[in-house]
Design a protein around this nucleic acid. Structure first.
Lengths: 254, 254
DNA sequence: ACTTTACATTAACGTTACGTCAAGGTGTAT
DNA sequence: ATACACCTTGACGTAACGTTAATGTAAAGT
C-alpha cells in the first residue's frame, strides 16, 4: 500500500508537518518522490513510523531514535520487548501517581495527613528510573500483563447509583482494612469489620453469598500473586491479614 | 515549613530554573522574599506546586494551568477527582498501547497479521478523548483502583531463570487459550491443554496442587469482576470458557 | 476547457518549557 | 578572611514542532 503524506499522517494520527520534519531529519524518508515532487510512503515506511512513534511514546528524543534505528545492531524484536518493559514500568509509575492523588483527596477530606514529601511521591519517576538502571535487567516487568483493565460487563450493566455505592464501599473497605492492619489483630473489631465490608463488596457480584466460597476466595488472595500484590501494595502483609480476618469472620458466622 | 528555592526544588523533583520560570509567569509566586532577595516558599506554595505538577502530568500547558488555578470557580476537590478520572483514562490508553506492542510482537513472530490501521491503534488517544467528551460522565473510571501492581514478594524471590520460564509459560497459556476459545469447545484438546497449562502456571505459586482448589479458583475467575475483566479483555467470554475447561479438566483427572 | 477545491511543495518565523552559562551578591563555618 | 555553598538576574540555546506565506499540481465539476 502506498500513501501520500496526508494519508499517512491521517493513518498515524500525526501532522504532515511532522512527517516533513522527520524527512528533513532523515529519520523517515519517503519510499520515493513522485514525478511532481510528492512524497510517497510504502509499507516499510509505515512500520518505521510505528517504531518511531513507539519510541516517542517513551519520551526519547528524535535524535536518539534516529541513532537507535540506524545502529547496526538494531534488533526490532528485542526493541519491542524492551518497549513492553518500559510501558509496564510506566503503568507502575501511573499507579503511584494515582495513589498520590487519592491520598491527596483523602487529605483534603481531612482523613489523613500527608507530609510534604509524600505530596510529590507520585512524580518521582526519575528515582525509579535510577533504580531501574541499578537493577538493569529486563526480566522484572513481566507482571504488568496481569493487570486488570477494569471495565467489565457486570459493572457496565450496573446503574450509576450502584456504581457510586460500590465505589464508596470499596473506599470504605480499603480504609477500614488499613486501620485494621495497624492494630495487627485480624480478630479485632476493625478486622472483622473489614471482613464484613469485604462480604458486602462481594455481594455486588455474587448472586448468593456463601461463607465457604468467601473463605476460599480469601485463600486465593494469598495464593494468587496478582491479588497478593494488589492488597500488599500499600502495606505488605495485608493480603494475609485480610485472609485471616475472613477466616475468622466466616467461622464465627457459622 | 518554609523552603528556599533549592529545597523546594529537591522536594518536588524539579529544577530551580523551573521554579524561577513559574515565578516569572506568575504561576507560582513565593510566599515572600527575604531581606537579601531570596525566594521563600511556604506550605500553601507546596500544595500549589503539587497541583501544578498534577496538571502538567496531564500535559496541560502552563498557560492553561494558570487559567484554571486562577479561575474563580476553581474547586480543588473537584479538580482532584477529575485528575483521577484522567489518570485512569491514561491507564486505559497505556493498556491499549501495550496491547498494540504485544500485537506487533506477535506479528513479527508471524503469528498474526496487522492492518496498517491497527499498527497505530495504540496511539489514538485523541479519538478516545472525543469519546470521553461524548459520554461526558465521570463515573466510569472507578475500576482502575483494582489494577494490580505486579511486583510481588513471591516473584521477586524467584530466580531469573524461573521468571523466564514463568513468563514463557504465561505466554503459552494465553496463546493456547486464545486458540482454544476459537474452537468454542472447552472439552476439546486445545481447551484441555489450556487448563493443563493453567495448572502448571498455578504450580509456580502453590506448594501443592489440588484439583478442588483449582476448580474453585476457576469459579472465582468468573465471579470476581477483576478477573473476568482480565481474561475477557481480548475476547469476551474467555473467563467462562477457561472456567468450563478447568471444570472438565479437574473432573476427568479424578 | 475552465474553474474550483483539495492537496502538495519549500521557506521561514513563532512557541513552549525549560537547560545552560555568565556575572555577581549572600550566609556561615572554619 | 576566605572558602564554599547557595542565592540573584539576565540572556542565549534547544527540541519538536505549529503556523503562515507563497506557490505548484491532481482531480472533479460544469
Amino acid at each position: 500500500m502506498e500513501y501520500t503524506i496526508n494519508k499517512l499522517a491521517q493513518l498515524a494520527g500525526v501532522s504532515t508537518r511532522t512527517l516533513r520534519y522527520y524527512d528533513k531529519l532523515g529519520l523517515l524518508r519517503p519510499a520515493r518522490i513522485s514525478s511532481s515532487g510528492y512524497r510517497i510512503y510504502g509499507p516499510r515506511e509505515v512500520d518505521r513510523l510505528q517504531q518511531i512513534m513507539l519510541y516517542r511514546e517513551l519520551d526519547l528524543s528524535l535524535d536518539d531514535i534516529d541513532k537507535i534505528l540506524k545502529s547496526s545492531g538494531f534488533d526490532a524484536a528485542r526493541a519491542l520487548h524492551q518497549h513492553l518493559s518500559c510501558l509496564h514500568q510506566r503503568r507502575r509509575e501511573l499507579d503511584l501517581l494515582i495513589e498520590t492523588v487519592m491520598n491527596t483527596i483523602a487529605e483534603k477530606e481531612g482523613k489523613i495527613v500527608m507530609s510534604d514529601k509524600e505530596k510529590f511521591e507520585g512524580f518521582k519517576n526519575k528515582l525509579i528510573q535510577d533504580n531501574e538502571a541499578q537493577y538493569g535487567g529486563e526480566a522484572r516487568h513481566r507482571w504488568g500483563d496481569h493487570a486488570i483493565n477494569g471495565s467489565n460487563a457486570k459493572i457496565r450493566g450496573m446503574s450509576i447509583a450502584d456504581q457510586e455505592r460500590l465505589n464508596a464501599l470499596t473506599a470504605e473497605l480499603y480504609s477500614t482494612l488499613r486501620q485494621a492492619f495497624a492494630t495487627g489483630d485480624p480478630a479485632s473489631g476493625l478486622g472483622q469489620e473489614a471482613a464484613r465490608l469485604h462480604k458486602e463488596w462481594l455481594c455486588f457480584f455474587w448472586h448468593e453469598y456463601n461463607p465457604d466460597a468467601h473463605r476460599s476466595l480469601a485463600e486465593m488472595y494469598v495464593d494468587d500473586p496478582r491479588f497478593t500484590a494488589h492488597y500488599d501494595k500499600a502495606q505488605p502483609g495485608t493480603a494475609v491479614f485480610l485472609r485471616d480476618a475472613i477466616r475468622i469472620f466466616t467461622c464465627t458466622k457459622k
